[in-house]
Design a protein around this nucleic acid. Sequence first.
DNA 1: AAGATCATCTTGACGCCGTTCAGATCGGTG
DNA 2: CACCGATCTGAACGGCGTCAAGATGATCTT
Lengths: 214, 214
Amino acid sequence: MREAATAEARPYHHGDLRRALVDAARRILEGEGPSALSLRAVAREAGVSPAAPYHHFKDKGELLDAVAHVGWDMLGEAMTSAKGRTGDPAAHMTEIGVAYVQFSRAHPALYRVMYDCSRDKDMLPEGMQDNEDSAYCQVRETFRALAGPTVAEVDIELATIAAWCAAHGLAEMTSFRQFDPLKDGLGGEEGFLRAVLGHLGMFPAARAKAGGNG
Amino acid sequence: MREAATAEARPYHHGDLRRALVDAARRILEGEGPSALSLRAVAREAGVSPAAPYHHFKDKGELLDAVAHVGWDMLGEAMTSAKGRTGDPAAHMTEIGVAYVQFSRAHPALYRVMYDCSRDKDMLPEGMQDNEDSAYCQVRETFRALAGPTVAEVDIELATIAAWCAAHGLAEMTSFRQFDPLKDGLGGEEGFLRAVLGHLGMFPAARAKAGGNG
DNA sequence: AAGATCATCTTGACGCCGTTCAGATCGGTG
DNA sequence: CACCGATCTGAACGGCGTCAAGATGATCTT
């Protein structure tokens, strides 16, 4: 609708339909959730015919890939800026973990698409690949900096995977409403996140803080 | 197909269509994955018309709920028998964790349905609810036995959640093929699982073993 | 045993989906 | 200006979830 209104001015050729479709998909995700994200609905939201997207994406999956790409970029930025918010390197891991889960809570539908469309291809999601600036590499380099030179490479890799598992697992679990009472007793959702992370081995700063709380 | 052959003998009234539909759904899941699991395909596999399931389930979601229920039962049994395989109580948590992830790897499509259909309702999955015999309660009681009387109740709850996050996260991560080389260097998939669990705080036995390996 | 009842199953239809294809439209190149 | 390739439309196909109306048969009543 919002897009359809502005699209009246562009009569036939859209100009930047590819980006408009990705934006429309994100609006639908935010507003109506993943189950409403049909290719036809995206085209409708962008004000074009159902067949128009096929000139910019091979199929629906490729459109979702593009949406997921935006999501991983956003998550990477959130993690980077979270790391910058504390001067203590020992706290970096905790802050990254909290930022990760908070992103998944702020954009639950987008987060789901980010993993779903990589699962369908049996492939690592974009943010976990070994590209220079992926979110995963951010975590690994943070571990490497904390570990020092004596720690074996394989242990850095395993610690990164373990931390990622913990963050992703927590991202999924904390979305269930049944934990709300527990959160209330721990000073809200962020308190809950830090408490759970404190029970996982690789977040020493969170563990100290959780110990202080309970 | 398999079901359709035996269904020829039962002309109109099936007799136990509800169970037959759940079984048919599980066969499709195992054989063709979650994307092939349409209500019509399930009816086809069971040898009935597309509308027949509506006399046993309100909609497709309720059929999936029934399938998920079977899955959570299977997972609970796998966890119980894993705990019984070791006499050392300190190793229980690790064995449960390994059994959890191995179940998710043995039945990936079923595992996905188990979480998906609870996510769609913003509700805790069956195996995580506070019912007497749920898989989640198995983990919590194991923690309680290990913790002793001085540990606060909320910490037992948090440790259980943390362990569940770790196991679920690992279950999702280990399905990505890109970790295969890493697994090879750690004595296969089970070695990989134990190594990652060893980097997470609540699996002391795995941590000791992982330390011995690398 | 005969008939009524009610759950079960089928048939056929509706609207939405992803996808394809022929044709309309337009921007840029010769 | 004429053309061409990229872009978009309209109509169509099969598959999906779901529903209403009718056929079937097991069970219960008398």
